[in-house]
Write a protein that binds this DNA or RNA. Structure first.
Lengths: 220, 220, 220, 220
DNA sequence: CATGAATGAGTCTTCATTCAT
DNA sequence: AATGAATGAAGACTCATTCAT
């Protein structure tokens, strides 16, 4: 490996090369923007290519179909992250109450407040028309998400911090508020009529408080 | 129904007249079913017309475009059941805790489990494409709903049954679980991966319990 | 039903109606011409529609796909005729020798010399690229054709007119010359280098003579 | 292979030079295989290049277009085996009956059963699209072939072995069965519906028998 | 009023060909 | 000479909308 003084070794000197490696990323970014803004069906592949500064043909060089492009967007922005979250979960040393609060907060910062949350709304809309995508999303996002929450609740129960609850339904004590916020954000006041008086952070706090009130074993 | 004296009941004019006036209704009913089942884009006007027993051309006689048909469906179906609920609310004599439980339960029976929930999902999906409809829906449905919940919470606080909470965000303690259920039901396991192990009534119970745990003033 | 003096009862008075009934036929004719001239893949559906004087959409109103259009062309021009040929065969009262000659001659007039023979060449070319079409053609044309010939040979053998031969290979004594002629005609001298000195009728005669020389039981 | 003394065997110039000159040949070989297997349109230039172990760009370095590549393949592969056959014909000492049988048999072994028959089918398919090629093929292949057969028949007539026939049409008594077999083989049962019950050698035998039955002067 | 035949713009995808490196 | 990333024209098929009858 060359000394740090010379040119960065892993930066190809050729323009071509550099562009080539950047292409998929640029395309994924453009696709994320457009899918979230207009939905899957309404987004034209030409547009995605144009936004990424390439021709339609080039897009198909990297992604064999519009559906595969979408899957790649989902992998890039959501499913690929569960691994790191699992690690964080396993390594967490505080109380389960702290863990749950941390999750609410972190989820909001890393997912809810980003464009990725638009993908959830999109899936809800298009699931009927694109069953294969729905299947994919369920496997790659929905089920891992449920598992994550389930493990948190189980941890609390195992350590005697949480009441014993029916996991099957209790996961939605956590998921429903998060999903709601994710759907409410990009929906033109359809869920939240006065966005100006609404503070996501406060919402997150309140929902976490509330869930914990219900879950925590009461210290009499 | 005209008396047998007035005119022969099968007089063409009468029949045609009556059928003519029934047409839009039949079309709207068919459209509601199909839009809810398949979404806006995936519903073909041919199908709507066929379900209503008329030809495609006739549909366009009553509704100038597919979009206008959609608007008419929403206008027809989402309207003021709020009046009756307001009356129920005002006349309720039990505790606020009972009232809130009653609301969860009643909402599920009268709204959540009906086609209306399909319309809510539809609105969410198409809000971007129909800003005008979104505005309409917000005024006619979303705001009255928020107000209703707000009044219930206020009642509990006024009577010393509920803790003092920030109403602006607390309404979502109630609305988020309901919305989630409404969206989750018709969405191919996208929200609820194992529908066979999921019981809406149990979900409603648990969520109501949980909200109340969080809201009720603790009897020390 | 109106009296025979008035307008012909089964001729629709409306232009629309008349055109509607003519459409499939016009499309099939145009398709036959173009398929034979340019091949299946190289023929554009727009062109077919234009030749029939309608728009692309109209074509798809009558034929759900390009492949189905092709199948309809084949049915119209070839497979639909086996029924009548079978009847002729069953009703034939002459010697098997006469029957075979009659077949050679008739086949040439009704199939070989018409555009339909172009379809055979087409199938040969496109079979690899359109397996489904190949399968269809085999079922609808090739196998019935083989059966027909087989029955003729069997008749000759049953009546003691023809030598006993292995049917499985003997059918090609008849089919090979016919196929060759069918392929040779539209192929720019690729099979027959001097078309000007070539007379199909004479070819047919000679081939029939030859086959019969080989088949007939020799009157010692 | 250069001797080890002359130059280092892995000298770039030598290697590159030799490989460079081998390129077109490798490409032509790959193209022959693929064209014969999949037809002209269905063969992708990428595939041809890949089979030859070079990149797509390189192919276009040697052949300016797919069509030119096709022409080159035909030119390369269909050439004068006729010279050697002429010699064999002239030197043949047996009866004309034996000669004709020998031809049927030999043609099958040396041409019919080889890739060359695939090229014939190709030519037939693409003749319309490549008039120039068709012309070339006619001159180089079709006419010599006709001549060969004509000479055999003439020999038989000259020696009093064959009946007097109209040569112009009689050549097809021989050519039609051969052509048919050549086209029938690689065509997915389009000509021969039950390939498992079909034996080319038996076909050849039967056809030769049959032609001779028709040709031979009858020993009364 | 009602029909339904006709339209044609719009979309994804393929692949021969080019050209900067 | 060789590469392979990029191009863009072309084609089958759909479906909301129109309009002559």
């Amino acid at each position: 490996m060359p000394s740090p003084h010379s040119a960065p070794p892993d930066t190809p000197t050729t323009r071509r090369g550099r562009r080539k490696e950047a292409r998929p990323g640029e395309l994924l970014a453009a696709a994320l923007d457009l899918f979230v803004e207009k939905g899957f069906a309404a987004t034209r592949v030409d547009e995605v290519a144009a936004h990424a500064g390439v021709s339609k043909g080039t897009l198909f060089l990297y992604f064999p179909s519009k559906e595969e492009l979408f899957k790649a967007v989902v992998r890039e922005n959501i499913s690929g992250r569960f691994a790191e979250w699992d690690v964080e979960l396993e390594g967490f040393t505080g109380t389960s109450s702290e863990l749950l609060r941390y999750c609410f907060q972190t989820w909001w910062e890393r997912v809810g407040a980003t464009k990725a949350s638009g993908l959830a709304k999109l899936m809800l809309s298009e699931a009927n028309n694109f069953p294969e995508l729905a299947h994919f999303y369920r496997q790659e996002v929905v089920e891992p998400g449920h598992d994550l929450v389930r493990r948190i609740l189980q941890r609390g129960m195992d350590r005697g911090e949480f009441r014993t609850v029916d996991l099957e339904h209790a996961v939605y004590l956590v998921l429903a508020p998060l999903m709601f916020l994710m759907l409410a954000q990009p929906t033109m006041g359809l869920c939240i009529p006065c966005p100006e008086r609404f503070d996501p952070d406060q919402y997150i706090q309140l929902q976490a408080d509330n869930v914990l009130q219900g879950l925590l074993v009461r210290a009499t």
